[in-house]
Amino acid sequence: MPNNITRETPLHYFHKLSSHASSAQSPEIFNGQVEFALVVKEAPLSSFLNLRGNGSDKGFCSAVAEVLGVTVPTEPGTYHSNKDSSIYWLGPDEWLLFSCIDASNLEAQLRKALSGHISIVDISGGQTLINLRGDPCALAILLKKSSVYDFAAWPDADINAGRCAQTTFAKATAVVTNKADGSYDLILRRSFADYIAKWLLDAGQEFGCRIEA
């Protein structure tokens, strides 16, 4: 692929806007704060695949695990991960795969390994993952402002497993997951990413909230 091809994450322009604002200490975005208790960081472009299939079929689960090195979470509202990939439970026969493996490569491997009634859809262009980290108390309040879901009820995540929920987020939706380091990942649809970023900066303003490029 020629290297003059530019790729833009959903928050590409938001990063530019907020780093500019950060250097100027724009009161519109940061309310003049210099201390930031909360940090929002968008992951680099990665692969997202939507996977459908029969989770009670042992062959299906072991084939996916074989390709990704991650077991398929069959318990509702949970995810499993390793350093390269994560599998999030979205529904009784639906999972979201997040990986640094190239999407078409990953899809080809999965199609080769799986058989029967399955669906694999590359949705990499339409998603983004952002990490929310910072003061635990501020994080908890930010999430309470943003969603009807009670994230405080979740047990702490392990290094390779945790909870996830697809739910409302501000006036949009997100998949929210907890991580072992106490931070949260949000997976958003591309078209809503700008709105959610604006929301997070506004909702986190009282604690100081910035976007990290």
């Binding site: 509702p76 529904g91 409302t168």
Partner: peptide
């Protein structure tokens, strides 16, 4: 019954 959780009405 699928998520096996009580969730808010606005999700439905």
């Amino acid at each position: 019954p699928h998520c096996r959780e009580d969730r808010e009405e606005e999700e439905y």
